[in-house]
């Protein structure tokens, strides 16, 4: 199964959330790999704490692999052995493989999509799907040639299952933007249909994920004055109403990740140790990632609407 991670705006929490989902999915016993297709800023290595590829690889990264004919297989990083974080460096019993395919250091966005690039992309997805239970592909924010490329590639792989996650924050601007990215002019549905996807089928394969959400009843808000809490509560219901109108409401939401102070400070994986031993992360955050990692393959959560 291929999962594409996208957001309309940059800095939404797409990479942090999708890496944590993949990590949790591996802990649940699946073989997973993570493709950094955000060629403009390939930072997945940093989130997995693999210093050698923190800003992409200097070997054959995914960017080079797609752009140069005859380049060797893309560089693979086994996170369980190559992470600098001690807690990640041993594969827990029962966990599956956790492999990162980094972008290139100094890669840059794709200049266009051509036939050779498309062929290589199809080949890459098809080979990885043979080997891994889940392949997560982190795209750049907004409309891009990269998004166009993968939309075309999936048309050519009709038997390979795929799904899309659209990440957005819980604000007015983000809700409207997420809707626009999917349904707006030159959005995912438009471009997908142009290249041969069935519009309705494609729509059913898209779900939304809310990132860094502050619930009005969250523990963080305990010290607030009543007036502030009432105001937040009113905002929240207004946003829910807005989300419903923009078709990014509850029924198409796969999950939401609470705002977590540690993620505000640093882009990283949240391990059980962070929750239980050092207690720097909130249990709710880890639980939300864990839940998403299950829902992502749970067909009930993806039934047609």
């Amino acid at each position: 199964m291929l999962i594409f991670a996208i957001s309309d705006k940059g800095g939404t929490g797409r990479s942090v959330t999708s890496t944590n989902i993949v990590y949790r999915h591996a802990l649940q016993g699946n073989d997973v790999c993570y493709l950094d297709f955000d060629f403009g800023s390939p930072t997945a290595g940093a989130i997995f704490s693999v210093g050698s590829v923190a800003r992409g690889t200097t070997r054959t990264g995914l960017h080079d692999y797609l752009l140069s004919e005859g380049s060797p297989e893309p560089h693979r990083v086994d996170v369980w052995t190559e992470s600098d974080r001690e807690g990640l460096r041993t594969k827990p019993p029962g966990a599956g493989r956790l492999v990162l395919l980094p972008g290139n250091e100094g890669g840059g966005e794709l200049p266009a999509v051509d036939e050779e690039m498309l062929r290589r992309c199809v080949q890459l997805f098809s080979r990885l799907d043979e080997e891994f239970d889940l392949v997560m592909i982190d795209l750049s924010a907004g409309r891009s040639f990269t998004a166009e490329l993968v939309l075309q590639a999936t048309v050519r792989l009709p038997t390979v299952p795929f799904r899309w996650l659209v990440f957005h924050r819980w604000t007015r601007q983000h809700i409207i933007a997420a809707d626009g990215l999917v349904r707006g002019g030159d959005g995912l549905l438009d471009v997908g249909a142009r290249f041969g996807h069935d519009r309705d089928t494609l729509r059913d394969r898209i779900r939304f994920v809310r990132t860094a959400v502050l619930e009005p009843d969250a523990a963080e808000l305990v010290g607030l004055r009543d007036e502030q809490r009432a105001w937040l509560s009113a905002c929240d219901s207004e946003l829910r109403e807005l989300a419903g109108r923009h078709k990014v409401g509850r029924t198409v939401m796969l999950g939401k990740i609470p705002l977590d102070p540690i993620l505000q400070w640093r882009e990283q994986l949240i391990s059980d140790e962070d929750v239980l031993a050092s207690k720097i992360a909130n249990a709710e955050t880890a639980a939300a990632f864990d839940d998403l990692a299950k829902k992502i393959v749970d067909d009930n959560a993806w039934e047609g609407l």
Binding site: V122, Q123, S126, R127, E130, E131, F132, P158, T159
Partner: peptide
């Protein structure tokens, strides 16, 4: 190896196959 891999791809991506393998496994 690159040539052999492509010869495998031709078979593996054929529309005659359903791709629903009983397990995932590396080449």
């Amino acid at each position: 190896g690159a040539i052999s891999a492509r010869f495998m791809d031709v078979v593996q991506t054929s529309s005659l196959l359903d791709r629903r393998t009983p397990f995932k496994i590396a080449r």
